[in-house]
């Protein structure tokens, strides 16, 4: 058996054992508290036949809309302010203080401003991703290699050309680092917003089940969130590997 096959066999055995213990545990502890894998699978099948995709779609739409606003704004602001030495010096303490704020704590404020629909969640996701992209791109723009800029200057490059050909691509690694943080934070922001008050979304599904003491519903909701988070993170890692393939095997 190959190394990889052994590894995956081990993982499958561990997963089966854990599920078996969980399933059996229910008969000792009572399924009311810990539910059971079969009940969760049944609930997921039930949801699939009814409105799971509606809730999934709402959460995904909030994340997508928020990222679509926050990411480009964060990149543009970060790279512009990062290249303006004087402005960046003035802004530094503000940036540090904003960075220390747990952004999801803004959720109650945003709900009061924007109501209970999708809008406050979108704003929250946009805000979180804007800040994360801003901080990273800001640092990246300050770290751009001045000698690379000089080389382009001597070839006759204009300021705009230097920006597009050296500064922006030079920030790619930093932008990807920001995105890798922003995507899980976007999911957290959207779900927390939904759990506070909402009419739809995966966070709504989990908190509604909680209010009804529906353990199986909570676990089924968490399972969907786990899968969604894994898919989003894997997508970002794939994008990063493609965009940063020039870094070579040693990440130089």
């Amino acid at each position: 058996m190959s190394e990889g096959a052994r590894l995956w066999t081990g993982r499958a055995v561990l997963l089966a054992a854990l599920l078996a213990i969980w399933q059996l545990g229910g008969t000792f502890v009572s399924e009311r508290w810990i539910s059971s894998p079969t009940a969760i699978v049944g609930r997921l099948a039930d949801w699939l036949a009814r409105d799971l995709f509606l809730h999934l779609g709402v959460t995904l739409a909030e994340i997508a809309a928020g990222l679509a606003i926050g990411v480009p704004l964060g990149i543009l602001t970060g790279v512009t302010l990062g290249r303006l030495r004087n402005v960046s010096a003035v802004l530094r303490p503000f940036v540090v203080v904003m960075n220390s704020l747990p952004i999801v704590a803004l959720a109650p404020l945003l709900i009061m401003w924007f109501g209970i629909g999708m809008l406050p969640k979108i704003v929250l996701v946009a805000f979180v991703s804007f800040l994360l992209l801003f901080f990273n791109t800001f640092a990246g723009a300050r770290a751009v290699d001045e000698e690379q800029l000089d080389a382009l200057t001597l070839m006759g490059a204009s300021g705009v050309e230097r920006f597009r050909k050296v500064v922006l691509p030079g920030c790619t690694a930093w932008i990807m680092a920001g995105l890798k943080n922003a995507v899980p934070y976007a999911l957290i922001g959207a779900v927390i917003g939904e759990m506070m008050v909402s009419r739809a979304g995966l966070g709504h599904l989990v908190s509604r089940a909680g209010q009804q003491f529906d353990m199986t519903g909570i676990y089924a909701g968490l399972f969907v969130l786990m899968i969604l988070g894994s898919v989003l993170n894997e997508a970002i890692s794939l994008a990063e590997r493609h965009l940063l393939r020039w870094r070579g095997p040693h990440g130089a």
């Binding site: 000698e147 080389a151 001597l154 050909k165 691509p169 030079g170």
Partner: peptide, 14 residues
């Protein structure tokens, strides 16, 4: 002028 500095200034992403 064309200037070749000690450190090569090739753009690593190209």
């Amino acid at each position: 002028v064309g200037y070749m500095t000690q450190k090569d200034t090739l753009l690593p992403w190209r």
